[in-house]
Amino acid sequence: MAQTTRGRTALAGYLFLLPNLLGFLAFTLLPVLASLALSFYAWDLFTSPRFVGLHNFIALMRDRDFWYYAYNTVFLMLAIPVNILGSLLLAVVMNQKLRGIVVFRAMYFLPSIVAGVGTYLLWRWIYNPDYGLINTIIASWFPQWLSDGIRGLGVEWPPQWLTSVTWAKPALMFMSFWTVVGGYNMILYLAALQGVSPELYEAADIDGANAWQRFWAITWPMVSPTTFFVLTMSLIGGLQGGFEQAFVMTRGGPAGATTTISYYIYNHAFTWNHMGYAAAIAWVLFAVVFGVTLVNWRFGGRIVHY
């Protein structure tokens, strides 16, 4: 009796799992293995695949474009700490008993919800050098002496934004700030702040601590698990990111200045039909993501207060 019940449960288990498992095998597990195998081949989809051993990986290490795009990717990721700090500060300001806080939260969250082709198009228009919002503001409200000063330093001003090698990356970073600062990370910080006991702050008040000291001595350590989590997730996302906005806003340009690794994979795989080479880059990217995550978990534990 017990035997048959167990057997039936097992059978039911497989049946419940089956639809998902089939999809998982077909569209995730097999493709992962296939792309690993593919990275040792050269294949243009038309002729038959040719085994090339480690050649793709060796060529990649010598590929100057790859290193430039890796540099671009890391450069764009410099926005991550700024975005995270912004989310934390915003959460601190919002973590008060105030009327209408829900309205503000919805307002801040909106950009991260609708981020996509629609907002990339919008920012392309905002960054229009002649008629865009930002340069209209600069033209009418920016003090002349400051503009002259900036130009005197040899910096392009007013910026040509997306068509300028100097300004294209900062432009994308500023857009990312607008997109994510009030989004998921801020919500997580808000939840974390609500878990901090008010008694800690009361004790600090009695000791005469000012706002700055309270923040560094209480808030920052108390939310460090959240910081650790959002940093890890942002790093993973940042390493793989940058394709969509660059594709819509700059096509990776000017002169490759906004091409990231994910964009380079796209170009090799879907523009030039270099399936093997693209798979090799994707696997190197995976290795880097894996490594960063591992390092994060290993060393993150030491600085996080639980």
Partner: peptide
């Protein structure tokens, strides 16, 4: 598999 970048699986899926 949740950690694997989308690009890894995208290439074989496209070929399929």
């Amino acid at each position: 598999t949740m950690m694997i970048p989308g690009a890894v699986t995208m290439i074989p899926n496209f070929i399929l």
